[in-house]
Design a protein around this nucleic acid. Structure first.
Length: 428
RNA sequence: GGAGAGGUGGCAGAGCGGUUGAAUGCAGCGGUCUUGAAAACCGCCGGCGGUGAUGAAUCGUCCGAGGGUUCGAAUCCCUCCCUCUCCGCCA
């Protein structure tokens, strides 16, 4: 949620950000106007209420309360009618402002480059040109099915399209990735959390998933609970409605969870393989940071995710997202893209974002810089460290051998407990 | 799912329907004292919003949430949520 005060103070900045996102800026003038009317209505209402409260107090102080009450009742009744009329103007104005603001994305940071789509994202750095395999690269689904460690047919039998079954060494490798990611996260100061995977609409709202993305999520109307599309939701909202002591910051959380997405708008896209599933696993990294340090924190978070790719020796690049590509909640984002030789392309494996105070305002996550200071909103950041399914894809495609076997990255061996999957699908 | 108890400020814990935004204690902050610290003593010490200069001041609002009764509700009534205890069920 945008800061109304910012909108009042610097509408030009909000307008420019919206335009750079390709989001209409018409809401700015509308909100500013509604806000002025809202404050006028509130001031009027509150003046009348103050009048009424003063009369009530005189009753309380009168020697004969009953007599005084009887005397003032008609006056108060008149006031009450005027209060009701004045107050009636407030909720519609609030609702109108909320409705306008609910779908407005965060204000972009000035350092975000202009652009109209992912082709305008800016390459920040990469791990060098991907080393050639020296033979015809196969896509991961062919590798995995040949080894008997990926089974999409049986997954479809069980659950329909966009599900997968991992078997034997495939399942073990996936579990090893999770353990590896969590171990590194812990070494870098993240506290591991095992959160609920089902959360309330309120929680979804607080981290910006509602109401814009409602149709992309699994929801049980009966229970009134959403399946999380990412652990960003419970991790970020963990301290909702809290005022943290200043020395508690920064807070770093990591969670390995399943994530659930309908991918409603993705029909026909990435229909093969593990890239786009209704259910996938991910280790998510979240920071609650001092607002003055959130942009350096974004560099740190990105480096933490990047280090995982380096250690796995997977070719990757870091992209700074352009204005049109930055997500709803974020002010600035880096995408980590891993090289997939089977598809001859880079694919997103982590998106690291500084959401500034946008989620914190919705979730009311605050802190006191000093014990007597006014509460301030924290800044929230999130990124995958990393997406497990997509990392498995990258390992299969980058570590495939001419004979159909797959090597396990050295860093992963201690977690997997094996070094290779031979062409017969056996782990050694 | 059934029965009972309870939800008040950072914590603990009071609160006859009427200057109660809320006693008291602890914690925190500022100060006195001290070479320093502790102790003692004094003062301050909730959130949100409006007016105002992001100051002083002032007003409104909030005692789990939402309604209701009343001139007036933390205090009475209704609904919901949550927590705890016991029983049942269960991975």
């Amino acid at each position: 949620m945008l800061d109304l005060a910012l909108l009042r103070r610097d509408p030009q900045r909000v307008r420019r950000s919206a335009e750079r996102r390709g989001f209409g800026a018409g809401f700015v003038d509308e909100v500013v106007e509604l806000d002025a009317r809202l404050r006028a209505a509130k001031t009027a209402t509150e003046a009348l209420k103050a009048e009424k409260n003063a009369l009530t107090a005189t009753i309380a102080k009168a020697p004969d309360r009953a007599a005084e009450a009887a005397r003032l009742r008609p006056v108060i009744a008149t006031l009450e009618e005027r209060i009701a009329i004045a107050a009636a103007a407030v909720p519609p104005l609030e609702a109108a402002i909320d409705a306008l603001l609910a779908d407005v994305p965060n204000v972009l940071d000035d350092s975000v480059p202009d652009g109209s789509g992912e082709d305008d994202n800016v390459l920040v750095r990469d791990s060098g040109p991907p080393p050639p395999l020296g033979f015809e690269a196969k896509p991961h689904w062919e590798i995995g099915e040949a080894l008997g460690i990926l089974d999409f047919e049986r997954a479809a039998k069980l659950s329909g399209a966009r599900f997968s079954v991992l078997r034997g060494p495939g399942a073990r490798l996936s579990r090893a990735l999770a353990a590896f990611f969590l171990a590194r996260a812990q070494e870098r100061g993240y506290v591991e959390i095992a959160p609920p995977l089902l959360v309330t609409p309120q929680t979804m709202w607080s981290t910006g998933q509602l109401s814009k993305f409602a149709d992309a999520m699994f929801y049980d109307a009966d229970a009134g609970l959403f399946l999380i599309p990412t652990a960003e939701v419970p991790l970020t909202a963990l301290h909702a409605n809290e005022i943290l002591p200043g020395e508690a910051l920064p807070l770093q959380y990591a969670a390995h969870t399943a994530c659930f997405r309908k991918e409603a708008g993705a029909a026909g896209k990435d229909t093969r393989g593990l890239i786009r599933q209704h259910q996938f696993e991910k280790v998510e990294l979240v920071w609650l940071a001092d607002p003055q340090k959130s942009f350096e924190t974004l560099e740190r978070l990105t480096a933490d995710a990047e280090a995982l790719l380096q250690e796995l020796e997977l070719p990757y690049r870091v992209m700074l997202l352009c204005g049109a590509d930055v997500g709803f909640n974020a002010a600035m984002s880096y995408d980590l893209e891993v090289w997939l030789p089977g598809q001859n392309t880079y694919r997103e494996i982590s998106s690291c974002s500084n959401c500034t105070d946008f989620q914190a305002r919705r979730a009311q996550i605050r802190f006191r810089r000093d014990p007597n200071a006014k509460p301030e909103l924290v800044h929230t950041l999130n990124g995958s460290g990393l997406a497990i399914g997509r990392t498995l894809v990258a390992v299969l495609e980058n570590y495939q051998q001419p004979d159909g076997s797959v090597l396990v990255p050295a860093a992963l061996v201690p977690f997997a407990g094996f070094e290779t999957i031979t062409p017969d699908g056996v782990a050694h």
